[in-house]
């Protein structure tokens, strides 16, 4: 029917628009900063590898890895949000609502305080590993409850409670620590893409991209799951396995983000919403790449705003994502209401 062609055209146009936005975001990010560079110099540095340029290091060691990490992690965070919203059938479910960051922060607090007697600064790699393990642990709890509780709203409440318990434990520990002891923890919990290296990018890409591909290949069962568990089962899906896989995929994605960039709130809720309204569908086969791409662009642009608008003072990323994202979501919701 006609609707079908109209829809296909819309998907193509939105993807095209996103591709253009992606290029713009990349160019702006490279070009903007406390050191201004001309297009010619950027060309020389990027493609001719002109090491004699004094800005070579700024571009290759600071801006580029940061830019790409923002893209990969932003995409991961958004996709994780989309998966959790599908799983919980709740538009406000997201990695941070469910205590992924609180779990990470709690374990990080334990490790930081335990090691404070031995070293002044814990190495970044240890922060990353600790945060990752902490995130996975809190999701493991959600998963254990998910096996027993079939009602999604109750499960969501349990996730939020786990998050609160972790926060309480963290606050308790911090009460007994001195400020110097927890400086790394404080820095991590601000949430930022600042200071990311090529190694960070490599590891996060190695974790995120395969997860993205697997998720894409699961589009069909995810789509069936959107109709409800009963119907999904009647189509031949093994629900028990599917639930576990879905949670594992989304926690893999968000744990990775939390480990490398700290807690970045709001992206996981806002971006899937924005993408859904842009594409006018919830079909996973469109939404999985669409959400990832939108998230990447969203985070690159937010990071750009965070580091340039009040330069040289850098804003925390969460400030920008919330300030930019929330009004956008509200506006889109209002717009949709008037349409429907």
């Amino acid at each position: 029917m006609k609707q079908k062609q109209k829809r296909l055209l819309r998907f193509q146009l939105v993807f095209l628009g996103l591709a253009v936005l992606l290029v713009i975001a990349v160019v702006l990010n490279i070009n903007t900063g406390s050191v201004k560079l001309s297009a010619e110099r950027i060309w020389n540095i990027l493609f001719l590898r002109d090491r004699s340029d004094p800005s070579y290091d700024i571009l290759w060691k600071l801006r580029l890895p940061r830019l790409f990490t923002a893209a990969v992690l932003g995409g991961a965070l958004s996709l994780s949000g989309f998966l959790l919203q599908t799983f919980f059938r709740n538009p406000i479910a997201g990695p941070f609502v469910l205590g992924i960051s609180s779990g990470a922060k709690m374990l990080l607090a334990v490790v930081t305080i335990a090691l404070s007697g031995f070293m002044t600064h814990i190495p970044v790699s240890l922060t990353v590993v600790t945060a990752f393990v902490g995130s996975m642990l809190s999701m493991l709890f959600v998963l254990i409850f998910a096996r027993r509780i079939r009602n999604m709203s109750s499960l969501l409440v349990i996730g939020i409670m786990i998050s609160n318990i972790c926060s309480a434990v963290t606050d308790f520990l911090i009460n007994f620590a001195s400020e110097e002891e927890i400086v790394d923890l404080t820095y991590w919990s601000m949430g930022t893409f600042s200071g990311k290296t090529w190694d960070d990018l490599k590891i996060s890409a190695l974790l995120v991209l395969p997860t993205l591909v697997i998720t894409f290949f699961m589009s069909k069962p995810i789509g069936a799951y959107q109709l409800g568990e009963g119907y999904a089962k009647s189509m031949g899906i093994n629900i028990k396995v599917f639930r576990v896989v879905l949670i594992l995929l989304s926690s893999m994605l968000s744990a990775c983000v939390t480990a490398f960039a700290g807690p970045i709130s709001f992206v996981g809720i806002a971006v899937p919403h924005i993408a859904k309204l842009m594409f006018g569908t919830t079909k996973p086969i469109v939404m999985v790449p669409g959400v990832f791409l939108s998230g990447a662009i969203f985070c690159m642009l937010c990071d750009l705003v965070a580091r340039t608008v009040f330069s040289p003072t850098e804003l925390t990323l969460g400030t920008v994502t919330a300030a930019v994202g929330a009004p956008v979501v509200i506006w889109l919701m209002l717009k949709r209401k008037s349409e429907g």
Binding site: G228, Y231, M235, K276, T281, T282
Partner: peptide, 21 residues
């Protein structure tokens, strides 16, 4: 599961809430 799905289908009491479908 797939074999059953090709031979038996259902109309359940649970209400579905598909978005944008």
């Amino acid at each position: 599961g797939k074999d059953v799905a090709t031979r038996l289908s259902v109309v359940l009491t649970e209400r579905i809430h598909p978005e944008l479908m």
